[in-house]
């Protein structure tokens, strides 16, 4: 059966320097596997150069049964490459929570801080693909 890809987007507003934003996002019932993710700055910051790290991200899946992702979020001053999703293979339980946090680590003075938005894109599939099945049984 052909797989059907759905993108789940979790948006986080960062309004204070050093803010720790909690993530609690319920995935729809029909999603069966998460096959990739990207976490990126969406809007708010305007900088001339790239920054390797503006914050830290932690994500757990299936209502805290699986801690799977620790990643940094950076800033891209201009787009030079199509982002290839970081591959994962996370079987999803029906309609469970994705939880975690995003913590701002950008070192600026309080007066220089500007609010910004970070988006987490989860590439999910409605059906478990053949590749995903192979991985889960090894």
């Amino acid at each position: 059966m052909a797989t059907k890809i759905r993108y789940q987007i979790i948006q986080i507003e960062v309004n204070e320097q050093g803010q720790i934003a909690e993530i609690s996002h319920k995935l729809p019932l029909h999603l069966k596997v998460c096959t990739g993710f990207i976490a990126r700055h969406t809007k708010g910051l305007t900088l001339a150069n790239d920054l390797n790290e503006i914050g830290l991200l932690a994500l757990e899946f299936n209502s805290r049964k699986q801690l799977l992702i620790n990643a940094m979020v950076g800033f891209e001053s201009k787009v030079e490459q199509l982002p290839d999703y970081q591959e994962v293979n996370i079987p999803l339980e029906n309609g469970q929570l994705v939880t975690g946090y995003y913590m701002d680590t950008k070192q600026v003075s309080v007066s220089d801080f500007k609010p910004y938005v970070v988006s987490i894109y989860l590439r999910c599939e409605l059906e478990v693909s053949i590749e995903a099945k192979e991985c889960t049984t090894t």
């Binding site: 050093g18 720790i20 830290l56 932690a58 757990e60 805290r64 801690l67 620790n70 946090y101």
Partner: peptide, 11 residues
């Protein structure tokens, strides 16, 4: 106080 860990962080 700021507590940072791999699953949860809290002020």
């Amino acid at each position: 106080t700021v507590i940072v860990s791999e699953c949860r962080s809290r002020v």
